[in-house]
Design a protein around this nucleic acid. Structure first.
Length: 431
RNA sequence: GUGCCUAUGGUGUAACGGUUAACACUGGAGCUUGUGGAGCUCUCGAUCAGGGUUCGAUUCCCUGUAGGCACCCCA
């Protein structure tokens, strides 16, 4: 056999390996997502990462599917895509069993999602994303609830109010603004794109482009978009004061205040990229300048089920990725201290029969103590060293002496203190 | 797809264009044999690839590759 170059030990571009310490952090994050979602009455669902490509073509358009997804043809000639987002899947599932499900429907899932792009901070090719969706609620209670879930997750992870901000806007309000400014649909679309880039451009350059698109109306638009609250916004566009979107936004802000979510404000320059949003949209941002990406984003999408031939169904949901969230925790010093699941490491002093150790370990495991056994005949120091390196909190040395006397010394590695216990007392020590 | 930055043992760093590429940690072996988590000794292990400039390249230049960051896009 010819000598082949050794294989790389790097994970595939844009993906991560989760060594136990990393897995611990991931589980910490996903655990908070689960706990809080379930606290609000959301039920977990799941689906395959493989979906028929047409599911995304129907909604996202050819370009995104062709250039930004993992798409291939299977052996049966079917076009297959690794899911780049969960919303089409959940819409498909809900549409499929619409008559059998109990509404309002509260569902969540934490799928791994894939996109073919250049990896960068906060954005990889595979990530985990919590999806929280509520179906069948027309009123603003739906928005208030899902935003509360997101804020609750941030809180559970240790974030304080000043660490993040939630921004709100409304698609209907923006459309009304475009009409009020006398813009055509095409102009409106262009201006929307431009609004999305407002923070990335020089103010003067932005104004120039805005004027190119909207003409005289650009000045009003710019002033209105700079507003940090609804009142100021409406001063620039008084004709919109009676628009239903304004009422909805006010309801959401009031409802969140009542629910204890205070770091939230209206921001007319918030534009979520996708077209399927029909009402309130929202995003959550880190206040630390290192993390410029949204930590989560979502909104109301009442029309999405129509692609499955189903009737309209009111729906509000958001997605929250693990990558940006991890960056957030890191910057704010909120990463948890690693704790292995293993609590006890049994060291074998030379000569002790392994059967006796197995029996003891089995007894402890039956009592719920996560126990690993070192069956090597290494020096005790090396065995203890292994336990310490794995950050296992307790060690138990088992040799002839202990087996004969029935007395065991449990050593806590962090402090070095030893506790002498009989065999019967052992399991209770770990409770 | 575009731009900028980076590339030295497993990891983190060092080396004015000039000895045998240095140091720490990690890994392996040993000394000590029931608590030696340590200490000591020994040891494995690297200049991303190819080309160019030069008496001489880890160092300068070009190309490629890989990674990071940003743009595009953002589900």
């Amino acid at each position: 056999m010819a000598d082949l170059p050794p294989l790389s030990t790097e994970p595939y571009k844009g993906t991560r390996d989760f060594y136990p310490e990393d897995m611990f952090v991931l589980n910490h994050i996903l655990g908070a997502m689960r706990t809080v979602s379930e606290r609000f009455g959301y039920l977990e669902y799941g689906a395959s990462p493989l979906e028929s490509t047409e599911l995304y073509k129907a909604k996202s358009g050819e370009e995104i599917v062709n250039e930004q997804t993992y798409t291939f043809t299977d052996r049966g000639g079917r076009e297959v895509t690794l899911r780049p987002e969960m919303t089409p899947t959940v819409a498909r599932m809900v549409a499929g069993k619409r008559r059998e499900l109990a509404f309002p429907l509260r569902w969540y899932s934490i799928p791994n999602l894939f996109r073919y792009e250049q990896p960068q901070r906060g954005r990889l090719r595979e990530h985990y994303q919590l999806n929280v969706d509520i179906f069948g609620v027309e009123g603003s209670e739906a928005e208030i609830e899902v935003i509360s879930v997101a804020a609750g997750i941030m809180q559970t992870l240790g974030a304080r109010d000043e660490d993040f901000t939630i921004l709100l806007n409304h698609r209907g309000l923006m459309n009304a603004m475009m009409a009020e400014l006398g813009l055509s649909e095409e102009q409106g679309r262009k201006l929307s794109k431009l609004i999305d880039r407002k923070n990335k451009m020089e103010a003067s350059a932005w104004s120039a482009v805005a004027k190119e698109i909207a003409g005289e109306a650009a000045a009003t638009a710019e002033k209105a978009l700079a507003s940090e609250d609804l009142g100021t916004f409406l001063e620039h566009l008084p004709a919109l004061a009676a628009h239903p979107a304004v009422t909805e936004l006010e309801e959401v802000l009031r409802g969140l205040a009542v629910s204890g979510v205070r770091n939230v404000r209206f921001d007319p320059s918030l534009m979520r990229g996708f077209d399927y949003y029909t009402g309130v949209v929202f995003e959550l941002f880190d206040t630390a300048p290192e993390n410029r990406r949204a930590l989560f984003g979502g909104g109301r999408y009442d029309d999405l089920l129509s692609i499955f031939g189903a009737d309209k169904l009111p729906a509000v949901g958001f997605g929250m990725g693990d990558v940006a969230l991890r960056d957030f925790l890191e910057v704010h010093g909120l990463l948890p201290d690693y704790r292995p699941a293993t609590r006890l490491y049994i060291c074998r002093a030379d000569g002790a029969p392994s059967e006796a150790i197995m029996a003891l370990a089995a007894e402890l495991r039956r009592e719920g103590v996560n126990t690993a056994v070192d069956f090597t005949s290494r020096k005790l120091g090396d065995q203890i060293g292994s336990a310490d390196k794995q950050r296992i909190p307790y060690v138990l040395v088992v040799g002839e002496r202990e087996l004969e006397s029935g007395t065991f010394a449990v050593k806590e590695l962090a402090t070095g203190t030893e506790t002498s216990l009989s065999r019967e007392e052992l399991p209770a020590f770990f409770r």
